[in-house]
Design a protein around this nucleic acid. Structure first.
Length: 315
DNA sequence: CGACTTTGACCGGCGC
DNA sequence: GCGCCGGTCAAAGTCG
């Protein structure tokens, strides 16, 4: 969506658009048809882009799920595999980061999407306010509730590492470690170990119910507010897809949901079912919803009208 | 008063 | 065997 992203919030409603139509008396039908055509093309383009992105994610997930001759998992989730890889040891910048983060930082370890043993270790880097040192658990929002059970100052990082346990289900083995990046204090590194063995918390369930809104605020280089988000409001429903895929930073709010740092990219991976459902729903909405097409048309018309004072119109 | 956080102590793995 | 270090425990403190 280029810059007509504001279209959905355009104040122009039907009556306004109807009032504007006479301005296009030059060739209103052609204009509308042209806009409709553009909207349709845009829809198709977005659908293709969405498919392409999800196909890429699907490939990642297949690679992750493929039965691989990965090393046998260390017994359960106890003592998380001291994933201090040689690479992590080499990079004193992010000492707290485990396996996946190592692959993030070290090209030599980009390979192992297959080397993911059972106790999944995922790393998420989140740009956070450098001042809110106490809200690390809150800053790394993922829809689950966490209970802090320890804090430790580690050797290669002046910032303390906080240990969290999933507080939603007592038997849930998932743990989370959060630590500030040594070289960029505004960056939080959250390491998740294990998988939730329970349903999503109510908070996350609300995310899903509301259309699975994943927000990522790009930190570092590109600071566009919503780098790659699609928000569709149609027929009273709002569907917001955030398909951000940025390297190095970002927050993950998950819905179904896994965040994995793969090959230097932060990837939001939706569960296949949810993903398929979302795609189908978006495509359905875009294809069949006349209101959506009309809204887009009105928005485009409004923008054109905005520029009319600058366009010499020959009546 | 209960839930949650803090923090020092303890435990176990690992390298030397 | 010893020491280092990361991870966990649990008592004390804090907050609503």
């Amino acid at each position: 969506m280029d810059d007509d992203g504001d279209g959905s919030s355009s104040p122009t409603d039907d009556s306004a658009a109807a009032g504007l139509l006479p301005l296009f008396s030059r060739s209103p039908a052609e204009d509308l048809e042209e806009k409709l055509r553009r909207a349709t093309e845009e829809n198709a383009r977005l659908t293709r882009a969405l498919d392409a992105i999800l196909a890429g994610h699907h490939a990642h997930q297949r690679a992750l799920l493929a039965p691989s001759p990965s090393p046998p998992p260390p017994s359960a989730t106890a003592r998380a595999p001291s994933v201090s890889t040689s690479c992590a040891a080499r990079e004193d910048a992010a000492p707290a980061v485990a396996a996946d983060a190592a692959s993030t930082a070290c090209p030599s370890r980009q390979q192992p999407p297959t080397a993911e043993p059972r106790p999944k270790v995922r790393t998420v880097r989140v740009r956070a306010d450098a001042t809110d040192a106490n809200s690390m658990a809150e800053t790394v929002k993922d829809g689950y509730q966490w209970r802090k059970y320890g804090q430790k100052v580690t050797r290669d990082n002046p910032y303390p590492r906080a240990y969290f346990r999933c507080a939603f289900a007592p038997s849930c083995p998932v743990k989370k470690k959060v630590q500030r990046c040594a070289e960029d204090r505004s960056m939080l590194v959250a390491t998740y170990e294990g998988e939730h063995n329970h349903a999503l918390s109510t908070q996350t369930a609300e995310f899903v119910a509301s259309g699975c809104t994943t927000s990522q605020h790009a930190g570092g280089s590109s600071t566009s507010p919503l780098p790659c988000s699609i928000s569709i409001n149609s027929s009273g429903r709002t569907i917001t897809l955030d398909l951000t895929n940025q390297a190095g930073s970002g927050s993950i709010a998950s819905c179904g949901v896994e965040a994995a740092a793969v090959s230097g990219e932060l990837v939001t991976v939706l569960s296949p079912e949810l993903r398929r459902h979302l795609v189908e729903e978006v495509v359905q909405v875009l294809k069949n919803d006349a209101e959506f097409v009309e809204a887009v048309t009105n928005a485009v018309a409004a923008r054109v009208v905005d520029q009319i004072p600058h366009i010499p119109v020959h009546l």
